[in-house]
């Protein structure tokens, strides 16, 4: 079943076309990677789904809802959560409070919510930091806290913007495992933006490749890896 569908999306900033006529779909339960060189428009797509950027035209539907008709704060309630490429935690709040805010759309905070937040922290091995402010912790930890915050929203779709950036090799391996495990445990679909190819290729069910805002390839990891246009975009061969 198609969960998220992007149709003919066009996003421009002044004269710059950030996303050009992009269409793709993500199925329920899938891990779909969105890759492409710097400036390809990956984060811009996230920001359109989050309703932080206003596309010129096109449609985004999630589980039958027209996202482009809603304000940004309604998106979480539909079951979409995300992390940010540049950390976007609330530094003054404790780690627990960050996670509680992540569940804001669930309504009143009661004992059950708090227990859920504790479980999520435990699942991500963050429980020993629960009362610490979210400022001044190691980078990898902060990125995990962001994932914890996103999970607290009980999402059906989790969007991760470069979760592996800045992590060490072994941390990246752990992260790959984690994303796959979380997908199964929390019944998620995942939209993953990532430059780390080993991670993308090992955990994705589907890969969508962007270049200059347009889709240049789509398919299984094996198919995309073999696609000459993808190789060209990544190796920076002169455009014909």
């Amino acid at each position: 079943m198609v969960l998220l569908s992007v149709e003919d999306l066009l996003v421009t900033f002044g004269g710059v076309v950030a996303i050009a006529d992009l269409s793709f779909t993500l199925d329920e339960g899938q891990i779909c990677a969105l890759i492409g060189p710097n400036g390809a428009g990956k984060t811009t797509l996230f920001n359109c789904v989050s309703r932080l950027y206003e596309p010129k035209s096109g449609r985004i539907t999630f589980d039958g809802h027209e996202l482009l008709r809603m304000p940004a704060y309604r998106i979480a309630r539909l079951g979409i959560a995300r992390t940010f490429q540049n950390l976007a935690l609330f530094p003054a709040l404790s780690v627990t409070d960050n996670v509680l805010v992540g569940g804001y759309a669930q309504g009143k905070v009661n004992a059950k919510r708090r227990a859920e937040a504790r479980d999520i922290l435990e699942r991500l091995s963050l429980d020993h930091l629960a009362d610490r402010p979210a400022v001044g912790l190691p980078y990898g930890t902060l990125k995990r806290i962001e994932i914890a915050r996103a999970l607290a929203g009980r999402p059906r779709l989790l969007m991760l913007d470069e979760p592996a950036a800045g992590l060490t090799h072994s941390e990246v391996d752990e992260l790959s495992e984690l994303v796959r495990a979380l997908r199964d445990e929390f019944h998620l679909s995942v939209l993953l933006v990532e430059h780390h190819m080993a991670m993308v290729m090992s955990i994705s069910d589907k890969v969508v490749v962007l270049d200059f805002g347009g889709k240049i390839a789509e398919g299984t990891p094996e198919e995309t890896r073999a696609n000459p246009r993808v190789v060209e975009a990544y190796l920076g061969a002169p455009a014909s």
Binding site: S50, R51, L52, A72, Y73, R74, I75, A76, R77, A81, R82, F84, A88, L89, F90, V101, G102, G103, Y104, A105, R149, G153
Partner: peptide, 8 residues
């Protein structure tokens, strides 16, 4: 923006 993304 992060606040909006969690539904605030």
């Amino acid at each position: 923006s992060a606040a909006a993304s969690v539904g605030i």
